[in-house]
Amino acid sequence: MPMPGKYSLQPALITVADQIGFLKQFFSNCFRKGFEWTEFFRQAYNVGYRSTGIIALTGFILGFVLTLQSEPTMKQFGATSMISGMVSISVMREIGPVIVALICAGKISSSIGAELGSMNVTEQIDAMEVSGANPMQYLVVTRILACTIMIPLLTIFADVIALLGGFTATNLGGAMNPWLYFYKATTALEFADVIPSFIKTILFGFTIGFVGCYKGFHSNRGTESVGIAANSAVVTASVWIIIIDAIVVQFTNMFVYA
């Protein structure tokens, strides 16, 4: 058999084929009898509730800083009354989903990669498989679905907190009625701002779960490989988030704002 050259595409193609196979297994197990509800809710709690602290802090600072940074420029144009709308559109459309997804890639994808990698090293996944249980259904389906559902919810939460941060920053320099602030923030938004962004967060959530599970499930047998799986999960998920974001923005511009 000819050996692959130094710059052979063969390993990359094998990995892609492997990932497609993993994706197929995920979908076929999603609809198989015996869905693991208890494990799904446990994962949803881990992904969602346990991330609320960091997401709230990041969201608040995001809205706060965005308001403070844009205020001097907006003042020059006499458009300070539009700051709330500007913050709301930028957070909802772009910054909120991407920042939350990148934080979750670091926190959740790495944690899933390390957990499944460690289970792989200690033969727990083999033990599940050899006992006749289905590790794909128990470990992978529950985690990917939990990420796909909880990350959009975390993004909505972050968006609301970011508006609170923006309101706080606005009130540092003067007093603004909260109802007026939130009225201006929400009326600036259209469905075309919210829907594509929400769909994007679903794709981000799926990617975070999928990459974490794939990296953990396919880690090598050794302690070092647990760290490699976790690290690789963060890097790969982050890169995919940026790529998906670029693609979705292109589609949105083509079909929604056209």
Binding site: M119, E123, Q124, D126, A127
Partner: peptide
């Protein structure tokens, strides 16, 4: 294969207990 595995027990070297 699943049916076969129901009839086979496998004790791993490190017991492979589910640690969570």
């Amino acid at each position: 294969l699943k049916e076969l595995r129901k009839r086979i027990g496998f004790l791993f070297q490190n017991a492979a207990l589910y640690d969570s």
